[in-house]
Amino acid sequence: MKPAIRFEQVNYSVDGLHVLRNITGFFPKGKITTLVGPSGAGKTTLFRLCNGLKSPDSGDIFINEKHIKEYDPVTLRRKVGLALQNATMIDGTVFDNLSLPLKLQGKQLEEAEAKRLLNLVGLEEQFLSHGAKDLSGGQRQKVSIARTLVNRPEILLLDEITSALDRISQQDIEELIMNINKKFGTTIIWITHNLDQAVKVADYTWVMIAGEVVETGDISVLTAPKNERVKLFVKGEEN
């Protein structure tokens, strides 16, 4: 397996507090990796490092085997798309939000393309003119995913994107992400608290606890854990 993102002894701290400790490992290219672990494990911070929103205190990160520092930040962020849990919307309509990534490049999003993106994430076309801040949590998540896809990222980082969705919408998004992975070969890294979902969608998985990578491997890491801390986490006892 070729790595899409590779970490070598990455450390990151905030105000002297270690958020990530000695992270070493990789997310395989073209696969879906689920990133699981209790709250405060440093999963979202790891995403911010991959997207270039933060830099590690020490250690190295490679994107497609090229050091992250060698990328221009703008190019990196378009290549490594990030959809965060809070699904922040800018003021304006859903169309304004979908247009944002291209507007930042001085380009215009065609209405037909915007409609196609909405269909892709399971939203009806009439949502285009809706106020983005009036959407429900689930609808915002869907618009956020569609917006991230506008940049056609090679790597897609998804942070708890289905946590606000009902069961049916969750399944729709799972299928959508698996389709994107198959159709475009996009590398997906998906933070989820839902272990059933993690098992269902993943080719590969990472378990992080308290800023450390405890276990990585295929899905048997979660279905038949050998590591004691992972066993406790899967049972819901490791926090």
Binding site: N51, L53, V74, T75, R77, R78, G81, L82, L84, N86, T88, I90, L100, P101, L104, Q105, R147, T148, N151
Partner: peptide, 16 residues
């Protein structure tokens, strides 16, 4: 702050 981070994460410049 969140909107500023969003624009940066989508490949916007600090000025944008």
């Amino acid at each position: 702050e969140e909107e500023i981070e969003l624009i940066l994460s989508l490949g916007g410049t600090p000025k944008q």
